[in-house]
C-alpha cells in the first residue's frame, strides 16, 4: 500500500509527463525515418532511463511513507528535466516536421 498518496501522485504525474514528452519528440523523429516501428524504442529507451530511475526511487520513498521532504529533491530534478525536455521539444519540433 502507498503510505503517502499525495506525493506519490505528484511523482507519478511528473514522471509520466516527462516520459510522454520524450516520447512525443522521439516518435516524431522516428516517424520521419524509413523504419519508424523499429527505431522508436531504440531512440526512446535510453532517453527515458534517467526519468524512470529517479521516478522509481522517489515513488519508493513515497510508498514507504518517508515524508514529502525526502523525495522533494527528486521531484525538483524531475521537474527541471521536464522543463528542459518541453522547451527543447517546442524549439525543435518545427525542424522535424518541415518538409
Amino acid at each position: 500500500m502507498v503510505d503517502d498518496t499525495l506525493s506519490f501522485l505528484l511523482i507519478a504525474i511528473v514522471t509520466g509527463g516527462g516520459i510522454s514528452s520524450v516520447f512525443t519528440i522521439s516518435s516524431s523523429i522516428a516517424a520521419k525515418t524509413n523504419h519508424p516501428g523499429m527505431l522508436l524504442p531504440v531512440l526512446t529507451f535510453p532517453l527515458i532511463v534517467p526519468l524512470l530511475l529517479i521516478g522509481v526511487k522517489a515513488s519508493k520513498k513515497a510508498t514507504d511513507g518517508l515524508g514529502f521532504m525526502t523525495s522533494f529533491p527528486d521531484v525538483l530534478i524531475l521537474l527541471l528535466m521536464n522543463i528542459l525536455i518541453v522547451v527543447l521539444g517546442v524549439l525543435l519540433v518545427k525542424f522535424i516536421w518541415k518538409e
Partner: peptide, 14 residues
C-alpha cells in the same frame, strides 16, 4: 541531416 541534428541537440543535455 535535419533529423540527426535535432536528435543530437535533444540528447546532449540528457
Amino acid at each position: 541531416a535535419r533529423l540527426a541534428s535535432v536528435y543530437n541537440i535533444f540528447i546532449f543535455p540528457l
